[in-house]
Design a protein around this nucleic acid. Structure first.
Lengths: 234, 234
DNA sequence: CGACAGTTTGAGAAAGTTCAAACTAGGTGG
DNA sequence: CCACCTAGTTTGAACTTTCTCAAACTGTCG
């Protein structure tokens, strides 16, 4: 329930036309000429862990592209408890709801030092009106967000805690077979269990050698065993 | 785990330009001239409860607009359990993922006798290319689906069963203060609890007069009490 | 060194699951 | 018309999982 102010450092206007990860981002399909339609500054902001990009209910004035780092989207319940509904990785878009005229529906909190581009709503509006090349990317973003939401509902909010944790690890494991586990509080808020229970479940996995700590908050995962647990077969 | 074949009755091509609920549906913003761009038949199909509109993994060939009735979107887990991720009511769109080239990601099963319009993927593609008037509605659909998904995650998959049921009833209550509860199995699949536990929780609400059965599967709800339970204050 | 935030552990209580059995309320067919 | 079937619901009792609250532990930072 901590509240951090945004500590974004302004780093000067972004130069979208020579963006290093341009093929990953919202503007991937734009032609050179389309960039002339952008008449408002797109700021690149740098955010420390704990800072918020925007808060639920705020007037939606911009969409954000995550260039690096990790951001969580949180929703709060009437009773004060929170739920993490999505994780945003590099290339992802945050605050899409502003493009349909809504205020932000989540609070976006930085988990790992992040670089993000702040794209004013008007820029999206104008590009939408005047070039067709943004649409397909916008659709793709909506679709990606919805797919993650649905998957979290079926995989991370169904079944017992060990199954949920196993599925979570399978989802977030990198190619080298290792994964991060964030804080136990965040882990609990993603799996819909308490902090303590998240801790216990992780401990159990460590005891069974399903995961092995190989660095600060970095784990080597036994994929076979995870798949077995995820399917409730062992 | 029952499997029903689709029992759709073909009722002849729909006449979109004089659709009775046109201001509700995907084509709401189209101009008269835009309808000339539609060169494939849009069928109106009638579906009985238990029939499936499409199944997870099927090749996405069409988008559906629900004109009446009620449809559930289901995802299955490796261990065979199912989860209802969304409910589609009149005006809603199903199978949007086909517009970004994906196969269906859910199984769409009819809960209450439904009328749906089957819009071939190519029609959407062509309209998207040649008229700007579909885009904003498509975005709105994506947004609506994502909002429901996020809300289900935070409201219906978080907290104890009575809280979830209370939130569910508050969400689905009609203006007259009554609500339906479907089968206990479906209720469980929406709240992430077992059929038996769903049944027990409903029984508890009846005992406390939080809800009162006033017809076959129709309940009068005490809104104040529901809000109180939803917030875990009583 | 102490303060602090996050984690772990323990133990009892509460919530949820499981499995089995009993109980509906519609059909269907004799 | 009634006996019988079926699918869904309810209930009970033992069991497992999860929560709660409290206390101990860890590492970091001033």
């Amino acid at each position: 329930m901590k509240k951090s102010q945004i500590e974004a450092a302004w780093k000067g206007n972004a130069q979208c036309d020579r963006c290093g990860i341009r093929d990953l981002v919202l503007f991937a399909d734009l032609a050179e000429s389309d960039f002339n339609l952008i008449h408002l500054p797109i700021d690149e902001i740098e955010c420390d862990p704990g800072s918020t990009l925007y808060s639920e209910g705020d007037d939606g004035t911009a969409v954000y592209t995550i260039r690096s780092g990790l951001v969580k989207l949180v929703q709060y319940l009437p009773d004060g408890s929170q739920r993490i509904v999505r994780l945003l990785r590099p290339g992802a878009t945050a605050g899409l709801e502003t493009t349909v005229g809504e205020s932000y529906q989540h609070t976006a909190i930085v988990l790992q030092r992040a670089l993000a581009c702040r794209i004013p709503k008007q820029v999206i509006d104008r590009l939408s009106r005047e070039t067709p090349r943004l649409h397909s990317q916008l659709m793709r973003r909506w679709h990606a967000a919805l797919t993650q939401a649905d998957d979290w509902l079926t995989e991370l909010s169904t079944g017992k805690a060990p199954q949920r944790l196993a599925r979570f690890l399978l989802q977030t494991m990198e190619a080298d077979g290792t994964a991060m586990l964030f804080t136990r509080e965040d882990l609990g808020a993603m799996l819909g269990i308490t902090t303590e229970h998240a801790s216990r479940t992780v401990a159990e996995f460590k005891r069974n050698k399903t995961i092995t700590e190989i660095g600060p908050n970095r784990f080597r995962c036994d994929r076979d065993q995870l798949e077995c647990i995820a399917a409730a077969e062992c």
